[in-house]
Amino acid sequence: MGWPLSQPGLHTVAQFTGRDNEQDPLQGQIQALHSEVARLQQDIQDLQIALTTTSEHGDLIEAELHQTNLKLSTEVKERQRAEATLQALLELICRERDDLEIIVQTIMEHGDVVDAQWHQKLYEETIRSMSDGLTQVPNRRRFDEHFSHQWKLMQRESCPLSIILCDIDYFKQYNDIYGHLAGDDCLRIVAKALHSKIRRPGDLMARYGGEEFVVVLPNTTADGALEVAHKLQSTIAELQIPHVHSDVSRYITLSMGIAATIPSPDQSADDLLRRADRRLYLAKQEGRNRIIYPSSTCLKESTR
């Protein structure tokens, strides 16, 4: 590697060659040098080729890397876009899920509340169907059901059952004098007053029809019913509803018939009702404003 490679060096070797044949060893050296030079030149060429090849290969690799990089960048962007789309979709699905949950809850609660509303309506309708339209107290239908029920109950328990039938005295005359509207008002006032005095569980006061009212008193003897009847009569007297065409008082009065029994299979509820009705009739016959009860004692109430 220490040998000169320049042309002047080669020229010097040629000069030695031409001058002296004895210098063969030198000639040999020159040839060796030539060979070396040729080899080195070949090395250079090889190195140049290797350099070119490496360089070109590097460029190719670089180009390939660049392409790959571009491709990856595009892919990353696409993935980011897809992720954003998925995120948006996820949010939409979450929102729809929330909506559905609210809607399901709304429908369930709505069903419950509508059910409660129907139930309330049914209850009100039932009450209405059992109430007298004019006076708002229980009607004849309610009385029939309650009386029948209490009859069976008292029969089973062998307990007394009483009923009071009441009728407003001279009500036809009241209507004739004061008019039907005033008559309706009178019925309403009397019904409300009677109803307010019947408070025990199981007791029932109802409008029986026209100006007649009925009271059902389970677990009550004739004496107990008589006490109640007195109380009702006093209550109406205290109202002091003027009635100028009554022959027994200046105010509205009641006639009452009481019937009581311990219900048994050999008698009927209608029998009890008929007995009360007969005594009411008797109360009317005997001068009105009075109570007729089972001991056949006629109790005339003093005019207040």
């Binding site: 809607i103 709304t106 709505h110 509508v114 509303q117 309330q120």
Partner: peptide, 13 residues
């Protein structure tokens, strides 16, 4: 009755 319950749920939507 149903309005007092259900309409408030619509407000949640």
């Amino acid at each position: 009755l149903w309005q007092t319950k259900s309409l408030k749920n619509l407000q949640r939507l």
